[in-house]
Amino acid sequence: MDVTGLGKTYKVPVREAGLKAALKSLVRREHREVHAVSDLSFSIERGEMVGFLGPNGAGKTTTLKMLSGLLHPSSGQARVLGYEPYRRDRNFLAQITLVMGNRNQLQWDLPVVDSFEMNRAIFGIARPDFEATRDELIDLLEIGHLVTKPVRNLSLGERMKAEICGSLLHRPQVLFLDEPTIGLDVTMQKRIRTFLAEYNARYGATVMLTSHYMADVTALCKRVIVIHHGKLLYDGPLSELAERFETSKTIGVTLAEPDRDLSGYGEVVAVDGARVTLRVSRAEASTVAARLLADLQPTDLTIEDPPIDDVIERVFATPDEPGSAQPTGKQRG
């Protein structure tokens, strides 16, 4: 998958409040251009699982829609499996899938198996292969007991599993997954993550995943692409994201003698009995740790990056100014 300078601009009507503005808009409509995605470039190799991150309105879904052929780009170029997605070539569509966590593509009033049958016909899958793939996916997702129930009688989590199963019956080579675990409980999220990892391993499929649950991303993706205000902010290993955006580290220290004031070593974030958590600048972390070891002889000391959710929060808080968010580290594209 190769994306070069991809952009999408929407023209949206604008008008001020009030009757006067309403009358004025009858004669002359004013529009404003909204740049949902700007100059986005990256490449994804076959078989990669990439987390696609960004706050609400960052342009993630718009990008996925352009890559799956739903939207025409306003600028730039995308090639997926050698095809230009917006042309929606039949052979291209037969090799991809787009799963949107908040949308249902199954036949609402019919048993799940009937929707699967419909997908067999849509993708022209030979029956023996269809049945083998269907049964394999049903096993992997553990939905054997659900498939004879009408879709409308399934819970949200059950429906999502059935939805994913239906979306993969044609064994797509590229999976665009937009919030596939949204609204699901922790157990169900974990089951879907396990399944996706298994599918990727079994079929070597490329996966591009957006999720607001960082657990999805950390469990599945070594690489993340972060966008904000439609622009690329970071593209590289998830493990290096903290180095790029996080200016602090967390030192956890278990004291031999509790109730010591450690504010002189850094910002005290939490105290739990003899365990004290400090936040110190990344550059000083090793020096502070050495001082703590020398001064206090603690029974335990750890130096960690902050939780990934905190890192992401900091990434999204990055101001959108020219030059302020140039990707570093393992830049791609």
Binding site: D2, S43, I44, E45, R46, G47, E48, M49, N200, A201, R202, Y203, G204, K222, R223, P237, K330, R332, G333
Partner: peptide, 11 residues
């Protein structure tokens, strides 16, 4: 473009 994180397709 190459990537060291690429998961190679299964053999």
């Amino acid at each position: 473009m190459s990537s060291t994180d690429t998961t190679a397709p299964p053999a």
